[in-house]
Structures are given as structure tokens and as C-alpha cells.
Amino acid sequence: MTEYNYAYLDEQTKRMIRRAILKGIAIPGYQVPFASREMPMPYGWGTGGVQVSAAVLTPDDTFKVIDQGADDTTNAVSIRKFFERTAQVRVTEATADATVIQTRHRIPEQDLAEGQILVYQVPIPEPLRFLEPRETETRKMHSLEDYGLMHVKLYEDIAQHGHIATSYAYPVKVEGRYVMDPSPIPKFDNPKLNMAAIQLFGAGREQRIYAVPPYTDVVSLDFDDHPFEPTKADHACDLCGSETSYLDEVIIDDAGGRMFVCSDTDFCRCRRAAGHVGRLGTALPEAAE
């Protein structure tokens, strides 16, 4: 591949994105505008995440891509191939081996360590967007820390449903200052936002980058009498038997049959390799040996 610059983007663009990333890390949760480029994929498929990944990848990195926790979906496979070809990075499915992980809508089950970077694909970076459509006004609200409106959304949830029904893209306050949309991760993952790895958020269409540095205090918003609760399906994984991981519900026939499986495929595979078997699972050959 000599037709493209290393990691697809030209060096000036990568410098511009790195500046935005550094600024984002310096001001945790603040949305930094950047000049998003056209990428060879449609908006909504992770153009923001891909640009952030392109700016941070080096030839020594090991790259992993997950889409809703899975390594083997179209989006994950094609982004992984893309960087394999343009950046000559090693790729992996093992969470612990990766140095850069690009993710759509999940945080891996396994705790991330220092030295790792988690890159999120973000569709709408502005947590106040659906409450206040004017960008000029939401920016002012962020700068003046005028966040009463965010709680109005949660109030409406309780008034309508009896509990906080927001189950993904659950708003958080970063380091006591900026209210941030953690991208559409399930609220089950919100407690994991306090982590040792660097978290970078890229929104391509909306042209925003924001970041959460390691060990930053990230608090999910709630009411005193309706505290934040991470939720998941009340089942164990049918393949690996895990009762603590976030589950996907899969319909398996047209007679109402369904199974629950870990959404994090790597986590599930590791557990099965270690000999755990769920309700519908079979022991993996390597575990049987």
C-alpha cells in the first residue's frame, strides 16, 4: 500500500486531530471541535472513531475493534482490515493484548489497564441536544455549568415510567465539571468509565472530539431518592454461564426460542476456553483436551 499515507490520513490532518485529543484530555469531558475529514465509509459507521484511531496508531500498536462488544460483525471486521492494510498494525481479538481498542457502544468486560487506549464511536456528542436544539445555547449552558435541564430529562423519565428509563447514553458528570454523553453504551457500562486506560471519543459527522483521562472521576447523574442503577438482562450467559457480563438476547427459532449470550465475544470465548459451560453451550475442544 504505497498509495496512501500511513494510517490513511495525511500528516497535517493527524496533527490537527492529535491537538484536539490533547486539548480534550486537558479539559476532561469538554467537546473539542475539529475539522472532521471524509472517510471511506458512511457517516454513522464510525468515521469519528476511525479518525481518532488513525491519529493515535503507531506501527508498534496492537489493534482491536469491537462493535456492540463483538469482534466479528461487519463493521468491526472492516475497520480492523482497514487499519491492517493502511497502518500495518498487528490486530487481535484479545482485550488484554490490544493497545488501541476502537469500540462502538460497549466497554469490554475485562478491566482495561494503563497504557491502553479506548476509542469510542459517537453519533451525537451533545448530551443536551434533545432538550435544547440550539448549539449556541448548549455551548453556553456547558460554559456556565447550567445543567438543570439534564435532570429535567431524568425527572420526565421517572414521571412517565416510575424509574429512570434511560438505559443507554446515560449522562455523566466528568470530574465535577462537564456533563458528557458517554456515547450509546448501555448504562451497565457507566461504572466502568472510571478506568486506568485513556478514553477518547470521536464524533465524525458532528466534528467533535472529547476525552476522559485515566482515573478520572465520572459520576452518573441521578436523584437522591432514585439512585443510578446499572442494569442488565436477568439471566446468565447461555454459552459460558457468566452471570456478571452484559447480555444480548438472540432469537433462535420462530417458536419463541431465545438465548442470552455475552455481548463481549472475547470475554465469552475466554471463559469457554477456561472450561465454563452455559445452559445451551458445549465445551470448546481446546478446553476438553
Binding site: D146, G148, L149, H151, V152, Y155, E156, I158, A159, Q160, D222, F223, D224, D225, H226
Partner: peptide, 27 residues
């Protein structure tokens, strides 16, 4: 008023803007 938000939410907004964080009391 915020037309897309319930009457209770409209009244509660000012309370939440000055830091009320107890749903029962706001209501």
C-alpha cells in the same frame, strides 16, 4: 414554557437548576 416537557417538569426545572436532587420533594 418548555412545550415538550410535562407540567411537573416545567415547574421542577427551576428547582433542579438551583440544585434540587430529590425527586419526591421536587414533585
Amino acid at each position: 414554557l418548555r412545550m415538550g416537557i410535562s407540567a411537573g417538569g416545567n415547574v421542577g426545572e427551576r428547582l433542579m437548576a438551583v440544585g434540587a436532587r430529590h425527586y419526591g420533594e421536587i414533585r
